[in-house]
Design a binder for these strands. Structure first.
Lengths: 362, 362
DNA sequence: TTGTACGCGTTATCAA
DNA sequence: TTGATAACGCGTACAA
């Protein structure tokens, strides 16, 4: 990093390339990789015809196409994405912004997005943002992805300030996944309020008087959406919402919350905002000799692979993560290609009944 | 997909672009995005100077640089990665091949790789391969990444046939992560035999006569490496290796294995090849009224976030996944830049003692 | 420290 | 159905 570069930091950080590390010599004409020109010469056609064959355009005589492909193999030609991008103005690349916390859901959503993108002929590039970053980290990630040529961006981090942080960026580059309330990518997401509603109503239906709540990280919009819906359901049913017990998605925070709950004599039901926290909650309850679901029922959210193997097996509201990824990717691609959204069925959470809930005793 | 395209499938699949969907009109000269030419004009310098400022080259007068950056902001210039790649012959992109199963380890490794790549000024693109795919799926993924301009590739899928499947590809594009025994990227990986050794020796040291083993998916090289080392340790110590109980990394397969073990009266210790399987094993044991660790000790591998919240908390051999990702990315980048490997300390697994193991009773 | 000239490999346009 | 030609926007070589 040179001095001049550092002083430039105050200007458009989105533009300056920080990684100067010496120039690369240009390769001499002889050891250049074979190009469409070489193929054209070998096949006795124009480079345009080669391009058409390579790109799968219609209106090429099969015989010609075969000659071209034979030449491709003969000269060892390989397509050059950068040159194509420069000429066509398209990169067929979408970017994904991730929060850097290793979780089952992260990989599931990413895998779904990557699969859907690949099927549509797009490539996925990722940019991660440290947990609990401020707006700047998100705009940096966004800029990085744009600079690499992302034609659209999926933000897998529903944090509250995203809309303001991203600002006008989302107008020039199609963006999906932040802020359901903005209407941006609304159908790519799961209705978080519905999740909380299903969980809370399930416990109420079992006969519990009220339901306690262990919330997720306040940084994530899911957390407040679920909290609001949980509260609304209780109020609708004439129950008094107890104070929220804060968590941060981690099992450790669930454990702390569990200790709190264990100390509340009349608590009989808890809605925990993630399976991972539920493991912590249940362990704390277990250590405090409070039986689950005998004395206290627990419902959580996600249905990770391990949910069925908790003791007791978790009753939980399943989120179809992979489909979320697929839907988000498909939606950005539709936006990029300015197609109308294909009306697919909305992604529905699903209550999976297992062994961590029961009617209150007595 | 046209007819001619389909008949061409028999030729180089790595070359044909399957996704023709109409040509994009070229934008007229007026609404072209601002380029370095526009910046140069606005700043009253040459495009070359603009390029130097943007790329962070040294030897630019600070005052000039400032004028350029002001012009950048004024005209709304944005760097064009494809054009830079075409001119420089470099993409600063690395590809990562993933097996499409959502797991904690997948996201942890990926996040590590992405972070390290970003620090070095590289972008990560991903390609996923369905679980249990044959060699063709891997070569397809490899080709996809190469076509997008990956200068190096990290393969996060240590399956046995990779070396043969990839063949000469790894010579033209630096590749890390498959086959420790090949010496390719050896230091980017964790010694899987050491993991099995630590686990097995821990149980033997506690006084167990022998150790049973629940293996991982045979598709992964880890599985056989660990099995071999487990067997070797038992033999060294004069114990008789019992038959291997097969698993596939999933909690469900662990559960099945657990039922098998529960039916073996003299089993007192098990080395389970992943934490997720251990959850299944312990649940099965629990249902069969076999106390853990009272009657049977369990050691597993990974140390996922939930390991500490199993009942009992899992004694497990920790794999530093994020560092694995970092190391792999750094290693490919070194190979790309033809630098000598920076000798960092090898990644060491670590035995984390918790509550699932104990000396045999009696 | 700065500028001129050229080439990188492909696709869009338009004509044949 | 095919071909000639002109961009696309940047980085490198080399000269000043």
């Amino acid at each position: 990093m040179t001095h001049s570069c550092r002083t430039l930091r105050s200007f458009s950080r989105a533009v300056v390339n920080a990684h100067y590390d010496g120039r690369m010599p240009r390769r001499s004409a002889e050891d250049r990789a074979p190009s469409q020109v070489d193929v054209a010469r070998a096949a006795g056609v124009s480079t345009q015809t080669v391009s058409r064959v390579i790109s799968g355009h219609p209106n090429v005589r099969p015989e010609t196409a075969r000659r071209v492909m034979a030449a491709v193999d003969a000269v060892g030609y390989r397509w050059h994405a950068a040159a194509a991008s420069l000429a066509s103005g398209r990169t067929r690349t979408i970017g994904v912004i991730l929060v850097s916390t290793a979780r089952y859901s992260t990989s599931a959503i990413l895998l779904g997005a990557e699969g859907a993108a690949a099927e549509a002929g797009y490539t996925v590039i990722t940019a991660s943002v440290p947990q609990h970053s401020g707006p700047a980290a998100f705009t940096d990630a966004f800029d990085r992805l744009e600079r690499q040529g992302s034609e659209g961006i999926v933000v897998l981090a529903p944090v509250g300030f995203l809309a303001e942080a991203l600002g006008s960026r989302v107008e020039r580059t199609p963006t999906v996944g932040h802020r359901q309330s903005d209407g941006i990518g609304a159908d790519a997401l799961i209705d978080q309020r519905a999740i909380a509603r299903m969980a809370t109503e399930h416990l109420l239906d079992l006969g519990h008087r009220t339901v306690w709540h262990v919330s997720g990280d306040e940084f994530w919009q899911e957390s407040s959406a679920r909290r609001d819906a949980w509260e609304a359901v209780l109020l609708e049913r004439g129950a008094t919402p107890p104070p929220v017990i804060p968590g941060d998605w981690s099992p450790a925070s669930g454990y702390r919350a569990g200790r709190t709950i264990a100390a509340i004599p009349d608590a009989t039901a808890v809605f925990v905002s993630s399976d991972e926290m539920a493991f912590g909650v249940i362990r704390a309850l277990h250590e405090a000799r409070r039986a689950v679901p005998g004395e206290i029922s627990v419902v959580s959210v996600d249905d990770i692979a391990l949910a069925a193997y908790a003791t007791p097996a978790l009753t939980t509201v399943r989120q179809p993560f992979e489909e979320v990824g697929r839907a988000a990717a498909m939606r950005v691609i539709e936006l990029i290609e300015q197609r109308e959204p294909v009306s697919v069925e909305p992604l529905r959470p699903e209550l999976v009944l297992r062994a961590s809930t029961a009617p209150p005793k007595g």
